[in-house]
Design a protein around this nucleic acid. Structure first.
Length: 582
RNA sequence: GCGCCCGUAGCUCAACGGAUAGAGUGCUUGUCUUCGGAACAAGUGAUGUGGGUUCAAUUCCUGCCGGGCGCACCA
């Protein structure tokens, strides 16, 4: 539809001797202005050889006259407003046909073809074994999972990848803590892991890590020991190996349980430990080829030579070890070898922005013909800060990603309306709703910015929230079930009265889904779905939908059904699960 | 010091260079409680600041003020 109108405008402009590649056609913020609006008369006015004396408005009139001659199908009315906007009003039939498409397409409604045939790798979450799963990982997971689904929805084959730091100083710290257990956590004997679920053991490891981390800064002797451990681990010391393997395994299992709750399933896991060798080799190879240079014993890359805004970074330390930079090179080569993605989308925290640009520049210089750099896309998320100064979880610990999820789920559980749940049902529902509320808080704003999270407010029973979206859908479901019981079937009636703002909003879903991809911004979906839920709640409040005495009842049911379909598809794109009841 | 990001109602967030800057929350008031009130409706209230570009600036450029992040052997 949009393309058809644009084409017509283009034709008309050519008649006036104006050629433009891009025509701006948008939905006016105020729906009473029409369904589409263009500013071509305002923009094109200056390009005219002999502009009409009446100004842009007169020019708009001339354009409109010609547009009307074209008789664009489904365009009911063309008018001029304000300084020279041309507004298009579509015929009701266009919308009722679209609603019929929603019902016919079901879960396929809203799919696009922008990435048809492409392979996209999305790399996200990236927690580190031996360390707690913290809030940043939760943000990365919510964003990455949503982007994965948005990309999939545009026809791409998606590879979900998780790159984890299973080697490095943090591991040495954790191992040191386990070997010594200086605070005697859980009364656990030093040098071994306690018995328990993966989550419990991971929590123990987290405490050991934290102890060692403090000692590292305060105690010179401890620092020396940890540094020595780090070196031993790097060279896979036999004595430490089983302790290392067990701890690595168990923290990874604990992460896996969280992914399940969050609704993520990774296709591939990459580990830093496996990238050091390949990365080192590559850096050395390209040192000879002149991409890298020696400086103070280290191997560095002077990114500022190619882009003055970038800086120099170390790719191999003077001790000959591979820092993150070299491992990233190894990872890049590996993932392109494994999947050859058309786009490699990576989500990290914002502080890695410049670092990533330097690495990307190095890759550009290393592999100009393979176009790796051109296919790399980096998005960054901000930090989650907490309102009300409440920085610890219910158990009094530092808030981790895991404790935030569990605390939120527990609060939701307390506030749930009792519907005669079994314990299993209640657990399941509170989990789905609790995770939804966290994901909503993360995804509702632009992904780059920091977000302020208030545990109490985000699960408050009123207003903008994940539960609000789920609740609207539950209501719609209820209505549809009641209609079924009363044997009224949904049927679209193709009359002018049957198209209101709410119906128009429903059929905008495909373009919102597309925009979420083209800007890589899930928050467009959240904003849209919130408006849509609000629209439905108003629609619902206006009068009965299921009413045997109302001849419009079948149409209202069709609209309700279309709403439910779009809400389901939309929630799926942001990675929010839908409960059976709530 | 240099680079990147940000500054919008009391608070948390929107706005593809466009029309009267939208939501939620808070506060004030109302609906209804017959399809699920975790709801609906009404009122209240904002673009940090000085220039510039444009028919049109929250949006682009620029000065200042304020905040976050990054800038060599950590990840």
């Amino acid at each position: 539809m949009e393309e058809k109108i644009k084409q017509s405008i283009k034709n008309v402009l050519e008649d006036f001797g104006i050629s433009t590649e891009t025509i701006s056609l948008e939905h006016p913020a105020d729906m009473s202005h029409g369904d589409y609006s263009t500013n071509v008369a305002l923009v094109g006015f200056k390009k005219l050889q002999s502009p009409p004396a009446g100004g842009p408005k007169t020019f708009a009139e001339e354009i409109v006259a010609k547009l009307r001659e074209q008789n664009i199908s489904n365009v009911a009315e063309i008018s001029i407003a304000g300084p020279g906007f041309i507004n298009f009003k579509l015929s009701p039939k266009y919308f009722t046909d679209e609603l019929a498409n929603v019902l016919a397409d079901g879960e396929k409604y809203g799919r696009g073809t922008a990435l048809q045939g492409k392979t996209v790798m999305v790399e996200y979450t990236q927690p580190n074994p031996f360390k707690p799963f913290h809030i940043g990982h939760l943000m990365s997971n919510a964003i990455g999972e949503s982007l994965s689904r948005i990309v999939e929805n545009q026809g791409a084959k998606v590879i979900r990848a998780n790159y984890q730091g299973d080697i490095g100083l943090h591991v040495a710290k954790a191992i040191y803590g386990i070997l010594k257990n200086p605070s005697n956590h859980s009364g656990q004997a030093a040098g071994a892991y306690p018995k328990g679920t993966p989550a419990e053991v991971a929590e123990y490891i987290g405490k050991c890590y934290s102890d060692a981390s403090n000692l590292y800064d305060e105690d010179m002797a401890a620092k020396a020991e940890i540094d020595a451990l780090n070196k031993k681990l790097y060279y896979q010391d036999v004595e430490l190996w089983s302790l290392y393997q067990e701890g690595r395994q168990i923290t990874l299992e604990a992460f896996e349980e969280l992914y399940k709750m969050l609704g993520t399933k990774f296709d591939v896991y990459y580990f830093e430990s496996a990238m050091a060798e390949e990365g080192t080799k590559l850096v050395e190879e390209f040192l000879d080829k002149g991409v890298f240079e020696k400086s103070d014993g280290a191997v560095v890359f002077h990114a500022e030579k190619y882009n003055p805004k970038l800086h120099t970074r170390v790719f191999l330390t003077s001790a000959g070890l591979a820092p993150y930079e070299a491992k990233e090179i190894g990872l890049t080569v590996r993932k392109f070898a494994d999947y050859n993605p058309d786009i490699s989308l990576v989500d990290t925290a914002t502080e890695q922005r410049d670092y990533m640009m330097v690495v990307t520049e190095a890759i550009r210089q290393m592999f100009p013909d393979k176009k790796y750099a051109e296919r790399m896309m980096h998005v960054t998320h901000g930090m989650m800060r907490f309102a009300s100064g409440k920085m610890s979880s219910r158990k009094g610990n530092i808030i981790t990603g895991e404790s935030l999820v569990l605390d939120t789920v527990a609060l939701i559980s307390e506030k749930m309306t009792d519907r005669g749940w079994s314990l299993a049902e209640k657990t399941e529902v509170s989990e789905i709703v609790g995770v939804a509320s966290i994901k909503y808080s993360i995804l509702r704003s632009k992904i780059g910015s920091d977000i302020v999270y208030d545990v109490e407010k985000s699960i408050s029973t009123e207003g903008d929230s994940g539960p609000y979206l789920q609740y609207a859908l539950m209501r719609a479901k209820s209505v549809l079930e009641k209609a079924k019981a009363e044997k009224i079937s949904p049927k679209i009636s193709h009359t002018a009265e049957s198209v209101g703002d709410f119906e128009k909003m429903i059929v905008r879903f495909p373009e919102v889904a597309l925009r979420a991809w083209s800007e890589a911004e899930p928050h467009h979906l959240i904003t849209y779905l919130t408006e849509l839920a609000s629209g439905f709640n108003s629609y619902y409040a206006q009068g009965k939908i299921v009413d045997p005495t109302d001849s419009h009842s079948p149409h209202k049911l069709a609209v309700t059904s279309a709403f439910a379909t779009v809400m389901r598809n939309g929630l799926s794109l942001v990675g929010i699960r839908i409960p059976e009841r709530m």
